[in-house]
Simulated assay, not measured.
Amino acid sequence: MIGNDIVDLQLAKTQSNWQRRGWLQKICTKQEQQYIFTSGKAEVQLWQFWSMKEAAYKAHQRRFNLSRRYNPKNFQCTPKGEVYVDDYSYKTFTEIQNEYVYSIAMTSNEDYHSSVYDKTMNACSKLKETISEKLNIDSSLIHFTKNSNGIPLVHIDQKVIQLPLSLTHHGTYSAFVVSI
Rank of each mutant, 00 (worst) to 15 (best):
Y70W: 09
E133K: 13
L66C: 04
V44G: 06
R69P: 00
L165H: 03
V160R: 09
I104S: 01
R68G: 01
H155I: 07
S67H: 06
S148N: 12
L127F: 09
F75D: 04
V83I: 10
A59T: 06
F64N: 07
I156R: 01
G150H: 03
E133T: 14
E95N: 09
T92H: 00
K41H: 08
C28E: 09
A56I: 02
C77T: 02
H169G: 05
L141H: 09
Q31T: 11
F49V: 00
M106E: 05
Q45I: 10
Q61M: 05
K119S: 15
C124E: 13
R21F: 07
L153Q: 10
S51N: 06
V7C: 15
G40I: 15
Y88C: 11
L66E: 04
H113Q: 08
L135G: 06
N17P: 00
E82D: 12
E99W: 05
D157K: 14
P164V: 08
Y102R: 00
I27S: 06
V7A: 15
V116R: 02
T172A: 13
A55F: 01
I27Q: 03
E95R: 08
Y102T: 05
S125R: 05
T38A: 13
L167A: 08
S114C: 11
Y70G: 12
L66I: 09
K41R: 10
F144A: 09
Q15C: 15
N149P: 05
F93H: 01
H155S: 04
Y117L: 15
P152L: 06
K53H: 02
C77E: 03
K80C: 03
K134A: 14
N149S: 11
H143W: 03
R69E: 10
Y88G: 00
G3L: 12
K26N: 14
Q25F: 06
K119L: 13
E43F: 13
M106C: 08
I27E: 02
D111L: 12
Y35P: 00
P164S: 10
K41I: 07
R20G: 08
H169P: 02
V177N: 01
T14H: 10
R62M: 11
K53N: 08
N98V: 06
R69C: 13
A55V: 07
E99F: 10
G150C: 12
E129D: 14
Q19F: 12
I27R: 02
V154F: 07
K53S: 01
K126P: 04
G171C: 08
L24E: 12
C124W: 05
A56H: 00
Y102A: 04
V101E: 00
A42Q: 09
L24G: 04
C77I: 11
V178H: 02
N65K: 11
P152M: 09
I142H: 01
N136R: 13
Y173M: 10
D138I: 14
T120N: 11
M121R: 08
H143K: 11
M52R: 00
Y117P: 05
N4R: 03
D118Q: 14
H170Q: 06
D86R: 07
L11I: 09
Q48N: 13
D86N: 14
Q162S: 12
W50T: 06
L167C: 04
E110W: 08
N17V: 14
S140A: 14
G40Y: 13
P152I: 07
H155K: 10
R69T: 06
T29C: 08
G3T: 11
S174Q: 13
S148C: 08
H143R: 10
E99V: 05
S174K: 02
E95C: 07
F49L: 05
D87V: 12
L135E: 05
S108G: 10
